[in-house]
Design a protein around this nucleic acid. Structure first.
Lengths: 231, 231
DNA sequence: TTGACCTGTCACTCGACGGTGACATAACGT
DNA sequence: ACGTTATGTCACCGTCGAGTGACAGGTCAA
């Protein structure tokens, strides 16, 4: 050894004492630490700050382990995506299944979606990511979301004729995209068209507006205004 | 000179013969070339590909000139933002001013907005940028857009009482955000909730859906349902 | 003509990143 | 007790982007 400038590498852990105890060698535990670090980096720095170096640093682990255990960033993200990232589809589904009119179910589903968005910053980051790059993770999650969204749409139970007349998928696409976009935008701006998007009050307005739009569309002129007993 | 590896720099122009004629020295022309390059790089590679090096390369110019003439990337973007980036606010305004019902004007404005989005890729890129970073350019354009959007909203001429009842700003925020988001998403995905977002047909559906949502909200129960004379 | 200034070129530093080879040592089966 | 393997550490490499100092060749006024 040439006792060189002990420069180490940029990926060396910068936090936490790792020289003291050698940390018991446990592949599984290390894997978990790395996976957990992905979520933290993502939520804190966004996808642009995500890389072999930063994750290794965050996990307090040498970056070579990422290559060994996951084969690189690709595999790491793939493994991370396995875990339930967007776990609350169940809640949305439940909201959509509540016994009421299709319009009510749509309104409830939109509100639940809005709340989910704000409750899952890492998932939000992945969706931001989807907006300008494709990779293993974004592809996988986007597929999942498309499927879940379409299923939710069907479970609204809007009568076929009416759904076709109003182009339900297009309207749902717009409203969901709108909520998502505003949630994303909150990271870099406090308002959108004058509506505060970082406060509970602002989001209450947005949820109400989404619900009102959905209701107006589904209960609009020509709608079967009879009290519906839907399955 | 040590006749080193002729490595030159990464910013050296890679296209176009610049060794032949020395290109007449003209500060203004060079400035323009740089500014034009910004738009091209932005539209082609997105904001992530935007940098001193890439712009200089694209312009066929040495990067040091960017520092000399603009003081760096910040100043360059600032100067670029001076130029009319989103020039068609006039069209939207015109659509909104057309003599018809507020609902019709809203529908027309949304459709015009959707068309503008797809017609201005560099502007779209800047909006993508706004979603995950703040800088001179994004701040400036976001302010402009907020102002224009609010003005457009007022020019719809929705009766005060009704506007308050339906929370017009929130609804408009959702719909405009939805259109924008779908336009952004088109760069990385072909569909959104099953709706094709890269085809004219898909966009026609989205425009109709946006219009229908706006109409349903503004003409909904309680709306002045008198037969309107629409062109 | 000459000197000051301006435009443009070039070579270089610095830092961060992705990626790899070589090594030390703990854990484990024999 | 021993050798093998797996786990983790460290020092590198090449690349790329931001930023800078030095310089060559025009341009123009005195």
């Amino acid at each position: 050894m040439v006792t060189s400038k002990q420069g180490a590498d940029a990926a060396r852990a910068s936090a936490g004492p790792r020289k003291g105890r050698p940390e018991p060698r446990d592949r599984e535990a290390t894997r978990e630490r790395i996976l957990a670090a992905v979520g933290r980096v993502l939520a804190r720095d966004g996808f642009s700050g995500l890389g072999v170096n930063s994750v290794a640093r965050e996990a307090g682990v040498d970056k070579v382990l990422i290559y060994r255990y996951f084969g690189g960033i690709e595999g790491l993200l793939d493994a991370w995506g396995e875990g339930a990232v967007f776990g609350s589809a169940g809640r949305r589904r439940a909201a959509a299944d509540a016994p009421s009119s299709p319009a009510d179910r749509a309104a409830a589903a939109l509100a639940a979606y809005a709340r989910d968005l704000r409750a899952h910053p890492e998932a939000l980051e992945v969706m931001r990511w989807e907006l300008f790059e494709e990779n293993v993770l974004t592809r996988r999650l986007a597929e999942r979301r498309e499927a879940a969204g379409l299923a939710g749409l069907r479970s609204l139970g809007v009568p076929r004729a009416r759904a076709a007349a109003v182009d339900l998928p297009a309207a749902a696409a717009l409203l969901s995209a709108g909520l998502l976009h505003v949630a994303l935008r909150a990271r870099t701006a406090p308002d959108w068209l004058g509506v505060p998007i970082r406060t509970e009050a602002g989001w209450a307005r947005l949820e109400r507006a989404a619900a009102a739009l959905a209701r107006a569309l589904l209960e609009g002129p020509g709608a079967p205004r009879r009290p519906e007993v839907t399955p």
